[in-house]
């Protein structure tokens, strides 16, 4: 825990217009709000497709935030991971009750950083891209054309095969891929070279979910992420990287909500 925070004090992250999409249950059952954080290139829309409504249907106020430069949020070509985490913490603190943070893909890396600045009730890392060379190596092997340009500041392009299982109709998958934007070059580099996040505040329980057939995150990465938080990953075989958009999107979100209902442990 670091108490001296000159970055936060002397150079606060500049404000930006932020997109938050929400679905709230008809009746407030007192369940904690869930805030979804998309990965690089995705926006709040990715959760607005199925997960938000589904979570609200199960009584959880559900929200998704687009970090700056993503979805409908303001542009930010030079944004850093710190700025993305700032956006998440701002969105979390604007909600009426202590929230659960759910980060998907590189959004999980952003959530880990947000956890150091906001005591979430619980956190879920879904198909977490926590960076480092191993992940990069796997991505280069699977999709060299989409991955290598990112080293030179170009856009990181994930392919349909990486993101979705075959069960998603081609036209639908193409539609999603067409909506993808990009993270800033700086944030893409930070994915490779970043300092370990500061420890989470408030000691929240953390769940890792993913698919052994994810072509972005290798199973070993899921296991080691879960181990860092003292658990094992919940696995959903046969799904692509984009758990919230794949054909069987219902299974992981139900498992996450079940875990939360059991008190997140």
């Amino acid at each position: 825990m670091r108490l001296i925070r000159f970055d936060d004090w002397a150079s606060p992250v500049p404000p930006v217009r932020r997109e938050v999409r929400s679905a709230t249950p008809e009746l407030d059952e007192g369940k904690p709000p869930v805030l979804f954080v998309p990965g690089f290139g995705h926006g709040a829309w990715a959760f607005a497709e199925f997960w938000l409504e589904h979570a609200a249907g199960r009584g959880f106020p559900a929200h998704a935030v687009s970090p700056r430069g993503h979805g409908g949020s303001g542009t930010a070509p030079k944004a850093s991971l710190r700025a993305y985490a700032h956006d998440v913490v701002q969105a979390a603190a604007s909600l009426p009750r202590q929230v659960v943070l759910v980060g998907h893909g590189a959004g999980a890396l952003v959530v880990e950083r947000a956890l150091a600045r906001y005591p979430a009730r619980a956190a879920v890392l879904a198909a977490p891209v926590l960076g480092g060379w191993a992940t990069f190596g796997a991505a280069v092997r699977r999709n060299p054309g989409g991955t290598l340009p990112a080293i030179f500041g170009g856009r990181l392009r994930l392919s349909r095969r990486q993101l979705f299982s075959r069960e998603v109709p081609d036209a639908v998958a193409k539609g999603y891929v067409g909506r993808l934007g990009r993270a800033s070059a700086r944030a893409q580099w930070q994915l490779l070279l970043h300092r370990a996040p500061e420890p989470a505040v408030g000691d929240p329980p953390v769940l890792v979910v993913g698919s052994p057939d994810d072509r972005v995150v290798p199973p070993s990465a899921l296991t080691s992420a879960a181990r860092r938080y003292g658990g094992a990953p919940l696995l959903f075989p046969g799904m692509g990287h984009d758990l919230m958009l794949d054909a069987r999107w219902r299974e992981p979100i139900d498992a996450i909500l079940d875990w939360l209902e059991k008190g997140g442990s």
Partner: peptide
């Protein structure tokens, strides 16, 4: 100013 005033784990709104 805000960064020095708010609790370090619950920021004041950006706006």
């Amino acid at each position: 100013s805000k960064p020095f005033t708010q609790f370090p784990d619950f920021p004041m709104p950006d706006d």
